[in-house]
Design a protein around this nucleic acid. Structure first.
Lengths: 233, 233
DNA sequence: AAGCAGAACCTGTCATACAGGTTTGGGGGT
DNA sequence: ACCCCCAAACCTGTATGACAGGTTCTGCTT
């Protein structure tokens, strides 16, 4: 680490720490060396190590906590969520594009969930759908149940990458969901939306992937239509 | 920014800077205030502002360069790529799971690409496929053409989220691709893989989404089989 | 009007200091 | 021999000041 590479000292330190994790085969929860020790080993100031730590923490590759040593982190969608929100706010991504991606992966998710769900997951998913029906009057609560519903489906797909992606879209969804809801003015159209969720949940509980997938497609057809009605580009 | 929130000063600063970007409606390339100015406005030390900047830069929300002011960044898959690689290296994600996701989104991508591709994109994709055929003997070059092929398809789908995701998987794919290649020992099986890519490219060029999608499915069937042969969990 | 030089500004890195939070090891009591 | 508790050692979070080197602005020169 003599002459500064084109990444700067901090960039180099990020690389060195990543390599350290890989070479020592550290698993989530394992501790990293202290800032002082790393700064000695890499021949850089503690400032540089700290900025490298912050960068890795921003990507949720490591976790920081005051007083404790840094640890290897579990995958988490928080960072991705911020990245997606940034893309939308800066007009690099629009909501329709996100819905196309969500539709693509969620139809796959529901297929897998119908096949792989445990019994506990089946009842959890059903409960969430029923909760939506029960809180149809309270849109904030309804939204949270909706999000939890899709998250639970992703988990039941038994593929953490799907969970990660669903989580990544959750941040921006939270901001646009109310728009879609408001664009469903009639009671009938709102009931339909909740009914579709119940239908999905029942198909997953019945281990019927075809039906579950069809219902999910319907859900997205419906949602995209609502969004278009609301004039969301 | 009086009493430290549970996020710490740096976390607060990250929030404040993000809010600043959103409220001032900054677009990619726009400049942010200098570290000194922000540290004055937020009543924190420059250290804190710098660590907040580094965090945002790690997520590719802003871009840093020495001497220049920080700017709002374009979306970029670099950070996601690192996150995925981390997930795989720490056994939180396995390669099969990634292939399931890739298959799901790439079959959609190729459908969209067949519909939306420009003529320039069609010839670019074809060229990439032909390049694969030409460099069949040089596996490193072949891999790069392969990756570029899938990236070009994603771009032709005209949905930047797909480009983002394909890019996100590129890092780990680069590490596992050679394994899949080695597990195709016969010349025939290697030729088949290249031929499948040509077939996809030709279907996209012919604006035939059905055929393109079918060929892409085949490609993934084949790849997953090769990976399983190689014993990749 | 074009170009150039220096001033002003800005980021990258370092050293140091100190306030808390956390871990550890040892001492005392049972 | 065991357990509990506390102080010391360790660690991170934040602030300050300093300086090297890169970038931008400004005004003067030509």
């Amino acid at each position: 680490m003599e002459h500064v590479s084109n990444l700067g000292l901090v960039g180099d330190a990020i690389g060195a720490i990543s390599r350290h994790i890989r070479e020592k085969d550290l698993m989530p929860g394992d501790k990293l060396p202290s800032e002082a020790l790393l700064s000695k080993e890499l021949n850089v100031s503690r400032t540089v190590v700290r900025e490298a730590f912050r960068s890795l923490a921003a990507m949720r590759i490591i976790e920081l906590a005051t007083g404790k040593r840094a640890t290897v982190a579990q995958i988490d969608h928080g960072a991705m969520s911020l990245m997606i929100e940034h893309g939308v706010h800066t007009d690099q991504i629009n909501i329709q594009q996100i819905y196309d991606v969500r539709r693509t992966i969620e139809t796959r998710i529901v297929t897998l969930a119908a096949i792989r769900r445990s019994d506990a997951e089946a009842t959890e998913i059903l409960d969430l759908a029923y909760n939506m029906r029960r809180s149809a009057a309270n849109s904030a609560a309804l939204m949270e149940h909706d999000l939890a519903f899709h998250t639970a489906l992703a988990r039941a797909s038994r593929n953490p990458v799907y969970s990660l992606l669903i989580g990544a879209f959750q941040g921006i969804t939270r901001q646009t969901w109310p728009i879609g809801w408001k664009s469903r003015p009639t009671q009938a159209s709102r009931d339909l939306m909740v009914a579709t969720h119940v239908e999905i949940a029942e198909a997953v509980a019945a281990s019927d992937p075809q039906k579950a997938t069809a219902a999910m497609s319907l859900h997205f057809d419906e949602s995209v239509r609502a969004l278009l009605t609301a004039g969301l580009s």
